[in-house]
Design a protein around this nucleic acid. Structure first.
Lengths: 133, 133
DNA sequence: AACAGTCACTTGTATATTGAAAGTAACTGT
DNA sequence: ACAGTTACTTTCAATATACAAGTGACTGTT
């Protein structure tokens, strides 16, 4: 039997496995895409939304909070009147570069039709107002 | 189960971004943990279940199907009477090593309390009958 | 001053995915 | 015959996601 008398553990923190722990932080469908956008120079809520995958705004807001709370990004006000924030990668966040690079390399090798880094870079720049695929 | 009876955009295939496409394949909480286990020499359904993160059996079954359908793993019968399968990484799956390594390195650097590769290796071997966290 | 427009969210609410538990099928070994 | 093992499948409540619409604080235009 499991010990039942304890209080509820807030986050069982899956285990001391660095892979499992990392996945708990950014192992979802969207987090790394936001981080990718930050690498590509995007900074604001609106810019993240314009990316071709079209992240829902509520999910984006939540992910930004999570990434901030885990120290991967931080925000700084870029204007005061209505306070608006730009998001930036911390050192911790920037060190996710190798993780993304490994995934990009794998994708380029094993998923036909994926674009190279520079092609994606181009696509990111002219980030469309189009809602269509 | 419901079937998609209406218009069927079966998999919009998010975009030609290799990162987004990779995430569509293994960007969830469990897939890479199963792949980790395969790297650690685990092969059977029961062995995956015994890993310390305790993946639910229905999720495990689904992930194994998905990983097989995407060519990351394959299965081969290891006995006939009741046909039972052992799962193996394909070349495509083995090449996820660098992705996991990058994540492990990041976790070890930025998540306090995570174990090194060799410590995890040890833990994997004596994969417990313990149900306790 | 009134109104459209922008930006960064927030709030509802369907829908989809997940997780925990229990059940099933095909055996083996006692 | 019956318990045990292995590999799942089924059920269903809980959680997460997606989509649409709305809000608040402005700016710039008429």
């Amino acid at each position: 039997m499991m010990s039942p008398s304890r209080k509820t553990p807030p986050k069982p923190a899956r285990l001391p496995c660095p892979l499992a722990s990392s996945l708990d932080i950014f192992g979802d469908k969207w987090s790394l895409l936001v981080i990718r956008d930050l690498f590509f120079g995007k900074k604001t809520f609106g810019e993240f939304q314009k990316s071709p995958e079209h992240i829902p705004s509520n999910i984006l807001a939540e992910r930004l909070k999570r990434l901030e709370s885990t120290g991967i990004i931080r925000k700084s006000a870029y204007q005061q009147k209505p306070v608006r924030y730009a998001y930036l990668l911390t050192e911790k966040g920037e060190h996710l570069g190798p993780v993304m690079k490994a995934m990009v390399d794998w994708g380029n090798k094993y998923i036909p039709g994926t674009y190279s880094f520079s092609e994606i870079m181009e696509m990111m720049k002219k980030n469309s107002g189009s809602q269509n695929e």
